[in-house]
């Protein structure tokens, strides 16, 4: 536990207030986010659930500084993202935020090790060797470090991505359907690792998923529909989430 993130629970890692995001105009106008306000506490694992088109991905992207809002504001820690220019946003993504995408997470020309260290390599920072070893150990990739992505299985690739998301000790990790392309065994391995990152390192994770099983690894599940937060649930189980989803018409 000595190497856990020096974070305090019950502090806001990220929050979004009165978020509005509109795509298209006139008849084709879609309100992807329609007045969403959510707070993500430090050291918590949150799953964002919702049917297709509910706005869950948009919520994740705007939180992560990959997309901007048409109304409202987003904070990572105390930093309001709307006021940042491209350079500062880039720095923020590099230093304070981690990402795991559904697919295509890795640079094919780099080895697993280089992929894990990518944010640090970009910043030109030296990696913290102890932390790196711990992360690599935890995801179980020690003997795979010098392989290229094409030589790794899908599960291993996603674990490399997860290790990358953690290596720079970000304040918050955003995951977009991280287990979406994996078989159930590889998927549960990844999700277990994410769970451990929260429990052992105190990592804050926000994950978008439509899979009730994946959501059951989280501390809390948020339910979105038509751009609005319609419900939330503490300590979700696959069964309770599935039940709730049915009523949302997913």
């Amino acid at each position: 536990m000595a190497l856990a993130l020096a974070t305090e629970r019950n502090v806001s890692a990220a929050r979004i207030e009165d978020a509005v995001k509109i795509y298209g105009t006139g008849d084709t106008e879609v309100r992807a986010l329609d007045g969403v306000s959510v707070e993500f506490k430090t050291g918590l694992f949150t799953a964002i659930m919702g049917p297709s088109g509910s706005g869950k991905s948009t919520l994740l992207h705007t939180l992560a500084g990959l997309d901007n809002l048409d109304g409202g504001s987003v904070y990572i820690g105390d930093t309001e993202l709307g006021s940042l220019n491209d350079r500062h946003l880039t720095e923020l993504r590099r230093e304070r935020v981690g990402f795991i995408f559904q697919a295509f997470n890795l640079i094919p020309t780099l080895t697993a090790e280089e992929n894990i260290l990518l944010p640090l390599l970009i910043a030109g920072d030296r990696p913290d060797q102890e932390w790196f070893d711990l992360v690599v150990d935890t995801v179980g990739l020690k003997d795979r470090l010098h392989h290229r992505p094409t030589e790794l299985s899908g599960g291993q690739q996603q674990r490399v991505a997860a290790a990358r998301a953690l290596v720079s000790r970000p304040e918050i990790v955003f995951a977009d359907e991280p287990s979406g392309n994996l078989d159930s065994k590889a998927g549960s391995e990844l999700l277990e690792f994410m769970r451990r990152a929260v429990d052992e390192f105190g990592q804050t994770i926000v994950m978008v998923t439509h899979d009730p099983v994946a959501a059951s690894y989280a501390d809390r599940a948020l339910f979105l529909a038509d751009g609005k937060v319609v419900d939330h649930m503490w300590s979700p189980t696959a069964a309770s989430v599935l039940e709730r989803m049915k009523t949302l018409g997913a």
Partner: peptide, 9 residues
Amino acid sequence: LLRAVGMGR
């Protein structure tokens, strides 16, 4: 991806 994980322009 490179841009998302923090590579500058």
